[in-house]
Design a protein around this nucleic acid. Structure first.
Ligand code: FES
Ligand code: FES
Lengths: 159, 159
DNA sequence: TAGAACTCGGATAGTAAATATCCGAGATCA
DNA sequence: TGATCTCGGATATTTACTATCCGAGTTCTA
């Protein structure tokens, strides 16, 4: 029940990208976040495959969000990095052992799987209600409204 | 974001134990569920440490629930097997890089960690609303009210 | 009361996943 | 046309999970 560590880097990266109108290279993001550049690049590729960011090659290339930050939910980012398979997986052990249930009666998921799936639905629903824009606003509030401005300045300064 | 596979075995085991008034050895549970006996024993030890089951040694020993099934939540079982650490962990990367936030201002968790923690709270809350008795009732309903009776019969038959 | 058999408990190998890294393919600008 | 900078997938290393074994302790029997 441990989420991949790259999810945090992806979330921070999306928040940073939401403050830039020009493509940002992976190496620049890694420098800002203090993370291994190559590994961050691998996660950005996953975001690209999921359609959350768009990549541009060449000298002035980099990554850019495909949609406004308010239209990207945290759930999308989590699923892009960590996969879409549910956390709890029923291995159908009810069909094994002396009291095995015949396969013909197992057309529906078992009661335990249904309960776990409904609980996870609550989790995913909560994640879907949070957008990248919400996260940026929260970080801004914690820093008295200067954090995002500092990010924008830094992105253009060393360019 | 993948939950340990032993959680399923622990849940099935607790449901089975809720149908027995006498201690059930780990080997018997493994036979009923078609699982590796030694590995299931390891997970039962975790349940014992968490105070969910009580172990008895000796010839007629085995495992037994410490409380009524209606007083044991699924959340307790999940946390006993998979650990209590939250799925999302903030590594405080906001304190690294050129725009590092000074440590004196990091007394509270960051905005991203707060959002993720609140979402997980929804998940844990849903898991805490489900008890082992609920799971047993659901399995019984799926089998037209015969599953739990079959379990009780099997537990006493080969004893 | 002594013995034997059965139980749990933690310590010990094997395997899959996640972490971290590298170099080649492709595109942009000079 | 050439050089430089970018992404992309293929490649090692480490961690965590999976699976297993044998010893310590307890109960029943003779
Ligand atoms: S059979 Fe075990 S959770 Fe469905
Ligand atoms: S600093 Fe990254 S989630 Fe808190």
């Amino acid at each position: 029940m441990k989420m991949s560590n790259g999810v945090e880097w992806a979330l921070h990266g999306c928040v940073t990208l939401s403050q830039s109108r020009d493509p940002v290279p992976a190496a620049r993001l890694a420098e800002l976040h203090g993370t291994p550049p190559a590994y961050l690049a691998k996660h950005l590729q996953a975001l690209s495959r999921a359609g959350i960011v768009r990549s541009t090659a060449g000298q002035v290339g980099g990554y850019l969000l495909t949609r406004p930050a308010a239209a990207i939910t945290v759930l999308e980012v989590v699923q892009a990095i960590d996969g879409t398979s549910p956390a709890y997986r029923c291995t159908e052990i009810r069909q094994q052992g002396p009291l095995a249930v015949p396969a013909e009666r197992c057309d529906r998921p078992c009661a335990i799987a249904r309960a776990m799936a409904s609980a996870q639905e609550a989790w995913y629903g909560a994640l879907a209600d949070i957008t990248i824009a919400d996260l940026a606003a929260g970080i801004d509030a914690d820093s008295e409204g200067t954090a995002m401005a500092d990010v924008r300045r830094w992105l253009t300064s060393t360019a």
